[in-house]
Design a protein around this nucleic acid. Sequence first.
DNA 1: CGGATTTGACCAGCGC
DNA 2: GCGCTGGTCAAATCCG
Length: 163
Amino acid sequence: MTQSGCNYAAAPDSNYGELTNFEPSDFLKFDEWTEEEEEEKSFLLCVSPNNPVYQAHVMGESGGATGSHGGPSVGGEQKVGREKKEVKGRVAFKTKSEVEILDDGFKWRKYGKKMVKNSPNPRNYYRCSVEGCPVKKRVERDREDLTYVITTYEGVHNHPCSS
DNA sequence: CGGATTTGACCAGCGC
DNA sequence: GCGCTGGTCAAATCCG
């Protein structure tokens, strides 16, 4: 597949310990998420022996967002309530990482930074730097555990991995 | 010098 | 209608 090797939150080097590429089969459904109290959402928890710290939060029918999480049947229940603004291909990862810039195989250009209400940490906004690619991502630190970074991808890449 | 980042301003949506 | 909040724009600045 085109996205192979372009896993979200995949880490290229030792910055993130042994975090490396992972497969859809590394995820199990996980439904605890303390950040979003008002909504019931589905999560994927990476259970790979190598990557015990990944959590992925699927907020839409993100068909091609990652091209990787097609396995588990998630993303169904949260459609109710937010349907009007539901964005296809939105996936959030909660990643244990020292740094916020996770090399996922795509090239990103920062276009904004904002302090958000429920977090002491700023949220950063990135856009895929490939012309015509509509994918955006938001990156912010976990409010309660600064060792985690929450990365939200929105959209589907219309090009192969740029790295 | 060109591309990426920074940062304040601006805008739209939502709740009161 | 107004204020708050999140998201984006764009000019200035930085860096390779």
